[in-house]
Design a protein around this nucleic acid. Structure first.
Length: 573
RNA sequence: CUGCCUCUAGCUUCAACUGGAUAGAGCGCCGCGCUUCGGACGCGGAGGUUGGGGGUUCGAAUCCCUCGAGGCAGGCCA
């Protein structure tokens, strides 16, 4: 059920009928004829741009075409209360009471499914977070995590099959540093050897915790030779680190369906295989890279290396696959990973990346095209930077210095609900200044509470009336007429499926918190009217069901929306 | 130097249904309402050359070009 799409279809059908009767001519750009929301100063419920788009083809002014359409619209659609011509030729349409009451009944009947769009089912794979398994997640990871999870919720809500995936980068240089760090912490604990300051190591306290856990597990007895135990220690440390990360995600209400380990891809020869395949297609070759312009040339030594021809697919340059020591680059592993994704036959692949990896999107999209012969599209969503501030001062986080705010810190201070709502309450490709102090101070007038409060107020009405909010109401021929305030709320409710549809097709979840805020505003505003004028109270002598049904519908939409956002809806606050 | 992202009200917050009507919210500011079906509320006001300039058309914050500002990135980190 989507008012805007339904009436687009119905009106197009009518236009075709009119064409067959030679009343009007229809231009080719027929799909641009849409149903829109009238501007806020208009009382109309929906608005149609048909007359303006038909004008040229019919050699008439938009207003003249509009006059013809008004005649046929009112004749064909009994549910239209009025059709008026406005502005340059918009048709402003209002529905009658019967239509809206019926609409309310349908919303309530659909309940948890209201807002979901009937589209072709698709199989989605969405990869997000994928942070290095070298320690707890920090605030910077949070935005991408929440974005990915919420997108996944939107896909699921619309009836799709979704796999939430985490790519564990457990192969490469950072891991060595991490395992070394754990090793020296272990020596510090059991042999009292001072933690070296001359080596490149992670100083964070969580390394000590991991070291303690390794000792406790007793799976390694002799720590005298790092080389001998490296593989085992690495496996152990990474698994402990992943436990921390999964726990962090759990605090945000996030649970991945699948974890893919880079080391497994290497071990199972997947990297080799992909490179072999691409060599055959001549997409992988041995060659030299040009020195990047503007780079200091001192450090740069041109050398022969294994390269992927990503420049063929729109990337700026070809990309290296092998390091100087012969081991694979991160990109080579990711290539194998994406080949693996493709082989699992998803309809849509999505990667959520942090802003600092934005330069990476072109090459990974290239590789997906190369492997799938241009058949599979990978969509990369970049979640822009979260700039951290502490007391108004920019705050740089560094894993190396062990100086950063973890997700755990954040949630303990602000709570998961507010964290998710704040992170989602802006477009993901806009930078986001996050003042830790300010957010914790302001948590009380955070928009999330405003929306939750509306839900709690509705619950309070149903509690006082001793009516179960969870059992569906139904309006039968009640004489009560919805007033303008109520129609405003209903209009907003009717907008919900459109909001979901846009969030889905544009992959922009931020529309949902904005929408919910607006719905809550209309509700609170109406509620306050009841303080002044008893006519507007939900609990009144008339005991009309329609008004109560409207309340129930609002609660349904808030509930559905908040569930998608991963934010709770308490019945009392 | 090159690529990507961003620029909308006083603002360290952001919308604008993807080309539609008089560009809207939040915070802050000013002025009100309510001894409540829960004040974690509501109403009103001031505040704008949508970073500058040009172009495309019935119509541009939105598309194209150009200039400016900020951010991120640029093989042997991930």
């Amino acid at each position: 059920m989507n008012l805007f799409i339904d009436y687009q279809t119905k009106i197009l059908k009518l236009l075709k009928k009119l064409e067959s009767k030679e009343i009007i001519k229809i231009p080719k750009k027929i799909n641009s004829i849409t149903i829109e929301l009238p501007p806020k100063n208009q009382e109309a419920h929906i608005s149609c741009n048909a007359a303006m788009l038909l004008a040229k083809e019919n050699n008439q002014k938009p207003i003249e075409v509009a006059k013809i359409l008004v005649k046929h619209f009112t004749k064909d659609f009994k549910e239209f209360n009025s059709v008026e011509i406005a502005g340059p030729g918009f048709l402003n349409i209002s529905f009658n009471q019967k239509f809206w009451k019926n609409y309310l009944n349908q919303v309530i009947k659909l309940n948890t499914k209201y807002g979901s769009n009937k589209l072709k089912k698709k199989k989605y794979n969405i990869e997000f977070v994928s942070a290095n398994p070298t320690g707890p997640l920090h605030v910077g990871h949070c935005r991408g995590a929440v974005l990915g999870d919420t997108l996944a919720n939107i896909f699921t809500f619309n009836g799709n099959n979704v796999t939430k995936e985490y790519y564990v980068n457990d192969y490469g240089g950072q891991i060595k540093i991490f395992v070394n760090s754990v090793y020296y912490r272990i020596l510090e604990i059991i042999k009292n050897e001072p933690f070296p300051s001359n080596l490149e190591l992670y100083p964070g306290d969580y390394i000590i915790d991991i070291a303690k856990e390794v000792i406790k597990s007793k799976s390694i007895k002799d720590f005298s030779n790092l080389k001998k135990i490296f593989n085992l220690l690495s496996k152990k440390s990474i698994s402990l680190s992943m436990k921390i990360i999964e726990n962090n995600l759990k605090m945000l209400g996030i649970k991945h369906d699948n974890f893919v380990y880079e080391s497994n891809l290497v071990k199972n020869n997947l990297v080799n295989n992909v490179i072999k395949k691409l060599k055959v297609k001549n997409y992988v070759y041995n060659g030299k890279l040009d020195v990047p312009k503007g780079e200091q040339t001192k450090e740069w030594k041109q050398r022969d290396q294994l390269l992927f021809r990503s420049s063929l697919f729109g990337d700026d340059t070809d990309r290296p696959l092998q390091k100087i020591d012969g081991s694979w680059t991160y990109f080579a592993g990711d290539m194998a990973y994406h080949s693996n994704k493709i082989s699992r036959k998803f309809d849509i692949l999505i990667n959520i990346l942090g802003a600092d990896h934005a330069g990476y999107t072109k090459r990974i999209i290239s590789v997906t095209k190369a492997i799938s012969n241009n058949k599979v599209d990978l969509i990369c969503k970049v979640s822009q930077l979260v700039k951290l501030f502490k007391n108004g001062e920019p705050f740089k986080m560094s894993k190396r210095k062990g100086d950063y705010i973890t997700i755990e810190d954040l949630i303990n201070e602000v709570g998961a609900d507010a964290t998710r709502f704040i992170m989602l309450n802006r477009s993901n490709d806009v930078e986001f200044d996050f003042d830790f102090k300010k957010v914790t101070e302001k948590s009380k007038d955070n928009p999330v509470f405003y929306v939750q409060y509306a839900y709690a107020r509705i619950n309070s009405v149903f509690r006082s009336l001793k009516v179960n909010l969870k059992s569906n109401l139904k309006i039968n021929n009640e004489k009560y007429l919805l007033n303008n305030h109520e129609l405003e709320i209903l209009k907003k409710i009717a907008e919900w499926p459109k909001c979901i549809n846009l969030s889905l097709s544009k992959l922009e979840p931020h529309r949902i918190p904005f929408y919910l805020y607006e719905l809550a505003t209309l509700f609170h505003s109406y509620w306050t009217l009841g303080n002044v004028n008893k006519e507007y109270r939900f609990i009144n002598e008339e005991k009309n069901l329609t008004r109560l049904a409207l309340l129930q519908a609002v609660s349904i939409v808030i509930k559905n929306g908040m569930t998608i956002l991963g934010v709770s809806t308490p019945e009392k606050m």
